[in-house]
């Protein structure tokens, strides 16, 4: 940058009006030119004098406030970097050491006590969990045993439900014990219902539908116990609003006739 060009940027530099490129170029020129440094110093001094021509002086309290703030900051910094060092008699040190060792031993003993308590609580929780698990297993085994008895009973009827128009490939199996009246739905293959709708099983007797309850679509093989069915000539599945309907309102997806034994 030529000297004159740099000189032209002197006031904009002083008044913080340079863009980043101009600033870099000017500062480079300033580093290299003593004459420019002197020009800047003169301009600064002229500006300082112009500003000092004002009739106003800052309140005296400002100087005290600045001095106090600077000192306070310095004290804070000193406290942060150099903690206070004072001479302590040897017996105080010894007493402090004994107290520290005692504290450390107590702390270790307390930790061991806490560990023992934790271990006992942990064991107790595990025993409780195993007992719950055993109860659940016993319950499941009993339920499965009942289901097995029903399924293997000579009175159990297997009704294959076939897909109708909305889903011709759909199918499911109803297992109905004509003695205990228990009804199970198995191997359901139906499309996933739209949100807010649910499939519902119906027992049909003399053409009249009786609800055997709604069931959740799982998309895989499952065995679901439905409501007890007293009498049925056929079973059907329709798509209803969530929670079910009193009588079939939606499309019938599955239908299967109970064959006489």
């Amino acid at each position: 940058m030529e000297h004159q060009e740099a000189k032209d940027l002197l006031m904009p530099y002083l008044m913080d009006d340079l863009n980043p490129q101009e600033r870099i170029a000017f500062e480079r020129a300033l580093e290299q030119s003593v004459a420019l440094q002197e020009e800047l110093t003169l301009a600064e001094e002229d500006l300082l004098n112009a500003l000092n021509k004002g009739a106003h002086s800052p309140p005296l309290s400002v100087k005290k406030a600045i001095s106090k703030e600077i000192r306070v900051n310095k004290i804070k910094e000193l406290n942060a970097t150099n903690p206070t060092v004072t001479r302590t008699p040897w017996y105080y040190k010894l007493a402090a050491a004994v107290a520290l060792i005692s504290l450390a031993i107590n702390f270790l003993l307390y930790q061991q006590y806490l560990s023992s308590v934790d271990y006992a609580i942990s064991l107790e929780n595990k025993v409780s969990f195993m007992a719950d698990l055993q109860n659940q297993n016993q319950q499941t085994v009993a339920e499965l045993s009942t289901i097995n008895q029903i399924l293997s009973s000579a009175e159990a009827r297997r009704i294959v439900l076939k897909g109708l128009d909305p889903s011709p490939d759909a199918e499911a199996l109803v297992i109905w014990d004509t003695v205990s009246k228990s009804t199970f739905l198995a191997d359901v293959q139906l499309p996933e219902p739209p949100s807010g709708l649910q499939y519902q099983l119906w027992a049909l007797k003399d053409g009249k539908p009786i609800s055997a309850g709604v069931f959740d679509w799982s998309g895989s093989f499952s065995l679901t116990e439905m409501n007890i069915t007293a009498q049925a000539d056929a079973f059907a599945v329709s798509l209803e609003k969530a929670g079910g309907s009193e009588s079939p309102q939606g499309d019938i997806y599955l239908l299967g006739e109970v064959k006489s034994s």
Binding site: L47, L48, L51, N52, G54, H56, S57, P58, V62, K63
Partner: peptide, 10 residues
């Protein structure tokens, strides 16, 4: 500098 800076701010 205090007078100059004060007047600048004022």
């Amino acid at each position: 500098y205090s007078n100059a800076l004060y007047n600048m701010s004022l």
